[in-house]
């Protein structure tokens, strides 16, 4: 399958990429890892008039701790996040989640900035960003994760705005991400994440609605001393997932409860 024709330009800096996006207009798209965008283009579900390739921007893939926060450059590939000693030390949950994205070939190309900007409901990083109150930094501003994932594939990013880094809190206590799927490299049918942080629990859910979900009712129940299996019953509170080929809404809600329980119990 061959994508529709488009203009192509490489940017060597964020400023140049923004300028190119401005010139091409609102039908242009940023090309990072391309592993969501290119399949959509091949299926002609996306037909951008131009692609601005940001892969050559030096330093945009940097991973570092600074000011007590973990800064992950937008171009950091899943494989680099998984292998990064800083990530393993400061936010091991994120290193583990990176290993659950796609397969080796996909992890060599896909980027965290791409996943976040794409805002697929089945994306794994958005769940972690939301539940941990991460910040999404662009060339223009800093957006809190809770204000970023507006709807499926929908973010507040302007046409000439590029995600430059994701800033996570440091959290290296007990944690677990469980991604339920039929095949190893699939997207999550449902995913559940648990992270102990600041004396409480953060619980996040993947693919149970148009955006990632923070299961605050579960967090509060745990805070009040509920056992994991009791607290996890609240994981489906207020959820209204849509059914798809792989799971009905009821089954997704069931999975949310079961996986949340397991994630809390298996957090280590």
């Amino acid at each position: 399958m061959i994508p529709a024709a488009f203009e192509y330009a490489r940017a060597s800096s964020v400023e140049e990429a923004v300028k190119l996006l401005k010139n091409y207009g609102e039908d242009a798209k940023v090309l990072a890892g391309g592993h969501s965008l290119i399949p959509l283009m091949r299926l002609r579900l996306a037909q951008p008039s131009a692609l601005v390739d940001i892969n050559g921007i030096k330093g945009l893939d940097q991973i570092k701790e600074s000011g007590g926060k973990l800064h992950i450059g937008a171009l950091a590939r899943h494989v680099s996040i998984h292998n990064s000693q800083v990530v393993k030390d400061k936010l091991p949950l994120l290193a583990e989640v990176a290993a659950e994205v796609g397969d080796n070939q996909i992890r060599n190309m896909g980027t965290i900035g791409g996943v976040v900007a794409h805002a697929d409901a089945a994306g794994d990083y958005p769940t972690i960003a939301l539940m941990l109150d991460a910040d999404i930094v662009t060339n223009k501003r800093t957006i809190a994760a809770k204000d970023f994932f507006k709807d499926i594939f929908t973010t507040p990013l302007a046409a000439d705005e590029i995600v430059t880094e994701i800033v996570f809190p440091v959290a290296n206590g007990p944690h677990k991400y469980i991604k339920f799927r039929r095949r190893l490299f699939d997207w999550a049918i449902v995913g559940a994440a648990a992270q102990k942080m600041d004396g409480g629990w953060r619980i996040g859910l993947t693919n149970v609605g148009p955006t990632p979900v923070r299961a605050k009712a579960v967090e509060e129940a745990l805070h009040k001393g509920a056992k994991p299996e009791e607290a996890a019953q609240h994981a489906s509170d207020g959820l209204n997932p849509s059914g798809d080929l792989r799971a009905s809404p009821e089954y997704k809600k069931h999975l949310a409860r079961v996986l949340t329980k397991r994630a809390i119990e298996q957090a280590g």
Binding site: L31, G34, H35, P39, L43, L51, I106, N108, M109, F185
Partner: peptide
Amino acid sequence: TSQCGACTVTVDGKAVKSCTMF
């Protein structure tokens, strides 16, 4: 559709699916 891996090649030593790269 970026799933089967039949088109895998290495680019600068890294395995990639060549159907998902221009």
